[in-house]
Write a protein that binds this DNA or RNA. Structure first.
Lengths: 129, 129
DNA sequence: TTAACTGTTATATAAATAATATAACAGTTA
DNA sequence: TAACTGTTATATTATTTATATAACAGTTAA
C-alpha cells in the first residue's frame, strides 16, 4: 500500500495517513475486507512510531472505514452507503469547499478554471460514485 | 467586519481568522484600501489575545493580502492579478480538491451532487472572478 | 505638545496537540 | 510454542497555539 509522509505538509503525520488511506479506498486499491499493514510494519517502513500509525487507524475506525478484530490486522470495512447524510453532508462539504474556492479565486483562478479542475479531479481517480 | 470564532472548529483560531478575512475580501465586503480593525480591537471583541489576531494578520501580509504602515491600521492590499500562478496554482488547488472529493464520495455524494455543490458555492458569494 | 490610538518587539509562560519510547498483555495463526 | 496481531498504560519530548505584560516608535487629532 502506497503511503508516504510529506515533511513539507503542514498537517500532522497521522492526518496525512488518514487522508491517504481514504484515497486508497476510494480509488479501489483497498477494497472491503482487505487487510491494512500492521501498525508496526507501516510505522517502521515510514520511519515513525507505531502509535502514530495507530492513531490514524483509530480515526479511520471511528469513521467506520476500518474494522478491527483482536489479534488480527485492521481491515477495510464494508462501505455501506450513507443515504442519511445527503443534506447535512452537502452542507459540510459545501462549507469546506467555500474556503477552497476563496483560496482559488484569490490566487487568480476563474470560475471556469475552477470547474475545470473539479471535473479533472472527479474523473481522475474515482472508481465509481 | 464579521469575524467569529467557532469553538467546534478543529483549526487554530488564527487560521479561522485568516480564512474569514479572505472570505470578506473575496465577497467584496473588504475592498483594497479598507482598514481592518486594529489587532487590539478585534482581539477584545473576540475575547482573545492581541497576538493571536496579529498572527493572523501577519499570515495575510505574507500572502500579500494586507499591507501595514507603521502607526496605522492594517489595510487591504491592492489585489493585483497573479497570472504567474495558473499552472502551479491549479496543481495546488487540485491537490486540495482531491481530498475534499475523496471525503465527499466516501460520505455518499455522487459526481453530480458534488458538481452541484460546486456551482452553488461558486455563485453564492463571489463578486466577480 | 499632548493624548490616544496604531503596529512592533521582546520575553516569558501556559495549554494543547503531536509524536516518541518502552513495556507488558491478550488474542490469532501457523 | 513462536511469531505475529491489536491493546493498554505510562512517561517523556517536541511543537504549536495562545496568553500575558511591557515597553517602544510612528500616526493622528485635539
Amino acid at each position: 500500500m502506497l503511503i508516504s509522509i510529506n515533511e513539507q505538509d503542514y498537517r500532522p503525520v497521522y492526518v496525512q495517513i488518514v487522508n491517504q488511506v481514504k484515497q486508497q479506498i476510494l480509488e479501489g486499491n483497498l477494497k472491503p475486507g482487505d487487510e491494512l499493514p500492521s501498525v508496526r510494519e507501516l510505522a517502521s517502513s515510514l520511519g515513525i512510531n507505531m502509535h502514530t500509525v495507530r492513531r490514524a487507524y483509530l480515526v479511520l475506525r471511528d469513521q467506520k472505514l476500518l474494522v478491527f478484530r483482536l489479534g488480527q490486522q485492521a481491515r477495510v470495512a464494508k462501505l455501506r452507503s450513507r443515504p442519511a447524510g445527503s443534506a447535512e453532508v452537502a452542507a459540510v462539504i459545501g462549507e469546506r469547499l467555500q474556503e477552497l474556492i476563496t483560496e482559488a479565486f484569490l490566487l487568480g483562478l476563474s470560475r471556469d478554471d475552477f470547474r475545470q479542475i473539479v471535473d479533472k479531479q472527479i474523473n481522475m481517480r474515482v472508481k465509481e460514485s
